[in-house]
Each structure stands twice: as structure tokens, then as C-alpha cells.
Amino acid sequence: MAEIIVVTSGKGGVGKTTTSASIATGLAQRGKRVAVVDFDVGLRNLDLIMGCERRVVYDFVNVIQGECTLKQALIKDKRHENLFILAASQTRDKDALTVEGVEKVLNELKNDFDYVVCDSPAGIERGAHLAMYFADRAIVVVNPEVSSVRDSDRVLGIMASKSRRAEQGSEGISEHLLVTRYSPKRVAEGDMLSIADIEEILGLPILGIIPESELVLQSSNAGVPVILDDKAPAGQAYADAVARLLGEERPMRFVEIEKQGLIKRLFGG
């Protein structure tokens, strides 16, 4: 049975899709069977970043509406045979996703895969809610700025009360923070929140810190998830995050500022 991981944030444009693509690819590199699902109906993006946009025939909404089978809609990644993409619909509107429909598709995926990664749309509306509703684990993507931290806090509050796990009173979704677009220099200059600030305000463990890097945009444009660029610091940082997700310990890299204190705090020194 697969574990369902939602990648969410509240605020838009913080790096959810970038993260979904790299985490899913990273898990596949580690030999896991992975499906990555785009919940951003109307603003299909994941297929571009995964480099499979010209191979989308059927999408998530088609499957929900019974217009094709799940098998027909899953696109096999061109680099990893154990990684599949389920694209969002670009033409339908958000109401095409229903709780029952999403549940049916996720249940089917759970039987076939080790991990199902759900790329959430921004906001706290229907699409974002459906993306998180069935999750076992959440990666909350946050940028080092006050508004992003505030929105993540709101999303965490909603997950704690309105996920299926919360409604059933079972153990809650396990939550992780992933700080992206982190620039040690701008933190030092006081333009950005520090890791310690973010941790303190949100009170959650940090899964990874992805540095700000132009290579991220370049690799997205090329349809290659940045984790495949093992020379890019952002790619290495995503690989570390995947390792931590699998329970391995890795020191935080690319956080020159207050490095010592941070590692001590995160790993008990």
C-alpha cells in the first residue's frame, strides 16, 4: 500500500511543483514505485517540469469521469520506468474534482505504488483541500518570508482539522517543512527569515533547505527535475531531503549562516 504525500503551501509560487517533481524523481531513483499527481486543474504545470507535456493524452479529470482507465492516463517517465505522472486537466474547471472521484483514483494508485505524490494548487480552496484530504504525510513548502510562513501555518491548521485522518480521529498527517528559495546572504542582510525563525514560528521539523538558484528555472524549462542535476546545489539539497524522507540522517547543507547552531539543534549535536 502506497503512502500518500501531499506537497502544499497555501501561498502560490513558492516551489510546490518544483518540489513534487524532484521528490517524486528522487524516490524513483531510490528504486521506489512512484506516481506523481497534478491537482492543479486548469493550471497544468507538473507535466512541463517532468518533461512529458507532449505525451499527455488523458488526464486526472478524464479518469474521474470514467472517460478512460487510470492505466491509460498514467504517463511513464522517460528516465525511470518505475515513475508515472498523472497530469491535471488544462481545460476543465476545478469543480471537476470530487471527493469520491479523487478517493477512487488514489485507492487504485495505492495498490500499485509505494508512494503517491500529490502536487497541490495554491490557496485553501477545493483543489488544495482535496490534494491534502487523503494524505498520510505532508511536505509544506515555505519560502523564508513572513507571508509564506503565515500561509503555511494556516494550511497546517486546516490539515489538523479537515483531513480525513483528522475526521476519523486517527493519527494525524505527519508534517514536514521544506524551506525553498533560501538565500543565506539575504538572511544575513535581514531581508529574509532565518531557519531558526521559521522553525520557531511553525514548530515543525525541517526536511530540507533548498537554496535559491537560477538552475532551478533552467532545468524546469528543459523539462528535467533539478534533482537530476547532481552538480546543482538545489539538486543536491533535494536529494538530501529524499534521503531524510526515507529515514536517513543527512547534515543540512547550503546554509552557511549559523551552520553550527543549526545542525546541533536539528540533530541533537
Binding site: R150, D153, R154, L156, G157, I158, A160, S161, G203
Partner: peptide
């Protein structure tokens, strides 16, 4: 007395 464990988040 009402006891609450854990963080109360924005919007709650």
C-alpha cells in the same frame, strides 16, 4: 478547565 496540547495555528 479546557486543556489544549499543541500549537494553535493561524485561522483557528
Amino acid at each position: 478547565t479546557r486543556l489544549v496540547d499543541g500549537q494553535v495555528r493561524s485561522g483557528q
